[in-house]
Amino acid sequence: MTSERGAVEFRAVRKNYGGFTAVPHLDLKIAPGQLVTLLGPSGCGKTTTLRMLAGLETPSAGAILIGGQDVTRLPANRRDVTMVFQSYALFPHMSVIDNIAYGLESGGMKPAASRLAAGQGLELVGLSGLGDRLPSELSGGQQQRVAVARALVLEPQVLLLDEPLSNLDARLRRRVRTEIRELQQRLGFTAVYVTHDQDEALAVSDRIVVMKDGRIAQDGTPRELYEAPASEFIADFIGEANVVDCEVLGLAEDQALVVVGGARLTLPSRGIRPGPARLAVRPNAFRVEPGNGEEGDGGLEGRVASAAYQGDRIEYEIDGPAGRLFVIDGRSSVPLGVGSPVRLQFRGGGVALIA
């Protein structure tokens, strides 16, 4: 095994479909052992990118490398990758153990050895003892784990996951995504994960690559993308964000002095020059305090437009000079009434200047 095993690289990759360009230009490197999520709205190019890596689509230009080898023109069965599909793609007439062993036997492994390896795969995903069942006798979450086991027993350099949890209900999605992440970290394999679900991406990823119109809009850790979005698109797509007008008064090295409403903040400048600018403010970046309806130092004045009790939090819409803001208060259990004056204080995180 070389240090490059599991490394992935896209070099100036382009994909055209007739006169339509799905991916104009893609440069991307994935280190061995990372779980990288391709995230974006429908039509952003993430699935096309995954299919090019799998060998199911051929780039119109550029090169794709896996483990340091140029695989751009290699067929899918010679790329040393396996894919887990959202539909599971299990053979309904075969037992679970036979489903897992199928790929091994197709590759030339003897039946006894393949069934032993398949049993080890079931143990990996916590389904020991269920090998004789048919897929229809398993829950959706169990079927997805069988699909993961079938992919892993082939010992690929890279595991590809295409919307793997989209057929599961919300509670089951949370559990299975945790299991996939724990398995990936324990075994240390490289994984490329495609989803349109922001919460899913934040939960499982070492890195998130957000795509828009076939290009990389931002690439970073989940925390970087959430706390320091590069644009209004990222701020709105990764979680929710309020976009607020502000003024950059001055710069000191890489810090900016920013005034918004009655508050002054010092934030990373991120290349923004003095003058009018915009802030992305997360809903939980505010502390909600009763106000008197008058402007004052240190916050934004407003009035409650709506209040929704959500058990562990209260969700507000606040109207004020900055426009209508969506605010989450996790401290109080009793909502303020509609029309109540409030002052929104900045808590110190979840605020970033954006281009």
Rank of each mutant, 00 (worst) to 15 (best):
T82S: 15
S136K: 13
V153E: 04
R181W: 08
I100T: 07
T48E: 04
E163P: 14
P135C: 01
V84C: 06
R173L: 08
Q144W: 12
N77I: 07
T48W: 07
N77M: 00
D169R: 02
Y102T: 08
G126K: 00
K46D: 11
I180M: 15
I64T: 09
G131S: 09
A63F: 00
D70Q: 07
E123N: 14
L127R: 05
L165T: 10
I180N: 09
V71G: 09
D162T: 03
Y102F: 15
S60N: 09
H93K: 09
H93L: 07
V84D: 06
G126P: 00
V153N: 03
E163Y: 13
R78A: 14
P111T: 14
G140M: 03
R173M: 12
R78T: 02
A101D: 03
D98S: 12
Q144M: 01
I66N: 05
D80T: 10
F85Q: 09
M52S: 06
R133A: 12
T72P: 12
N167Q: 10
Y88F: 15
T178V: 01
A113C: 00
E137Y: 00
V148E: 03
E182R: 14
V96Q: 07
G108S: 07
G126M: 07
P111S: 13
Y102E: 06
P92W: 00
A54R: 11
G141S: 03
M83K: 05
L124Y: 00
P59Q: 08
Q142N: 04
T178Y: 08
G68Y: 10
D132G: 13
Q157F: 02
V71R: 04
L152C: 03
Q142F: 05
L65W: 10
K110N: 15
L124V: 11
L159P: 00
L116V: 13
S106L: 15
L130Y: 13
G108L: 06
T47Q: 04
G68D: 13
G108Q: 08
L53M: 09
S95P: 00
A101M: 10
N167K: 01
T47H: 02
R51T: 10
V146R: 13
L65N: 07
A89C: 06
V96E: 04
T49I: 10
G68P: 01
P92E: 03
M109S: 13
L138M: 05
L116Y: 03
G68I: 15
R73Y: 03
R181K: 15
R51E: 14
I100K: 04
S114L: 02
N167G: 08
T82V: 07
Y102W: 11
S136W: 01
A61P: 06
V71S: 09
L90M: 06
H93R: 05
E155F: 00
M83G: 04
P156H: 10
E155M: 05
G55S: 12
E137L: 02
D169K: 02
S128Y: 05
R175Y: 01
P111M: 01
A76M: 02
A113S: 08
A54E: 06
E182S: 11
I66R: 02
G103V: 11
L134Q: 14
V176H: 00
T47R: 02
P156Y: 05
I180C: 11
N77V: 05
Q120A: 14
R177G: 01
S136P: 02
G131A: 10
V125A: 01
Q142C: 10
L134F: 12
G55T: 06
T48H: 08
G62L: 02
S166T: 11
I97T: 10
L152M: 14
L53Q: 09
L104I: 13
N167F: 02
E179P: 00
L152D: 00
P135G: 06
P156W: 12
